[in-house]
């Protein structure tokens, strides 16, 4: 077991900002939807719009980071060990069996995570962004009579946006719980806060920043 630098500064910044924004968008969004009352309707609309734009900016930076660092490859779904991972959650975890996939700096996600996160990234988030933008700029009829842009009813847009919102809340609940299924109950959480995690196997030398290495060696 070696302590490794798994989540780098931007990744953690991105994760926590995204978490805060999604929670905030969820609360304000479901107020706009009429399900809850919290900020007051006018504030909820205003906050939701500001948070949405912030989220878009964050997404642009995140995409840039994923592409330039090659980290996007982490999310490519795979069949390998998929069944084993599912079996682990259904049976192994209760018997204290070892994780079927080793978490390494080069492969942080297990096959189930890969599928779920890929689904979020290519399906749910894009649907939310597109319907969200349409919602924001929705006018019927379109100004200047651009007929091809005429969406007659907000209903389709709103319904898709609502479905996405429900899925994200479900993901959020499951995600909170799955955090506790790491090496220890809190190891995943600690890793996302500090960036370091005890991983099985040999440390991945290249990924360790020089000053960290020094500090580790001095111990």
């Amino acid at each position: 077991m070696k302590k490794e630098y798994v989540y780098r500064a931007f990744e953690r910044f991105w994760h926590w900002t995204q978490a805060a924004l999604i929670i905030f968008l969820g609360v304000s969004g479901f107020e706009i939807h009429g399900s809850i009352h919290f900020f007051g309707y006018e504030n909820a609309v205003q906050y939701h719009n500001i948070a949405a734009i912030s989220f878009l900016i964050l997404i642009v930076f995140a995409i840039f980071w994923h592409l330039t660092t090659g980290e996007w490859r982490q999310y490519i779904p795979t069949w390998k060990n998929l069944r084993a991972q599912a079996q682990y959650y259904i049976f192994g975890i209760f018997r204290d069996a070892p994780h079927p996939t080793k978490k390494t700096v080069l492969s942080k996600l297990n096959p189930l995570q890969k599928i779920v996160y890929a689904g979020l990234k290519v399906l749910v988030i894009p649907v939310m962004v597109v319907t969200g933008l349409l919602y924001m700029f929705y006018r019927y009829p379109q100004k200047y009579e651009v007929l091809s842009l005429n969406v007659k009813s907000l209903e389709t847009i709103a319904v898709l946006h609502t479905i996405g919102a429900f899925l994200l809340v479900a993901f959020f609940i499951a995600h909170l719980y799955l955090i506790t299924t790491g090496q220890t109950v809190t190891s995943n959480l600690k890793a996302m806060i500090t960036g370091y995690e005890e991983l099985e196997g040999e440390p991945h030398e290249k990924k360790i920043e020089p000053e960290i290495k020094e500090a580790a060696l001095s111990k």
């Binding site: 939807h33 009429g34 709103a158 609502t162 479905i163 429900f166 809340v169 499951a174």
Partner: peptide
């Protein structure tokens, strides 16, 4: 469709169902 007033009943059912199941 008036936001805050209108909703799709089946989507609402699906959403609440999926949250409860989770």
């Amino acid at each position: 469709y008036l936001p805050g007033r209108d909703y799709d009943a089946s989507v609402e059912l699906f959403g609440k169902g999926i949250l409860l199941l989770t």
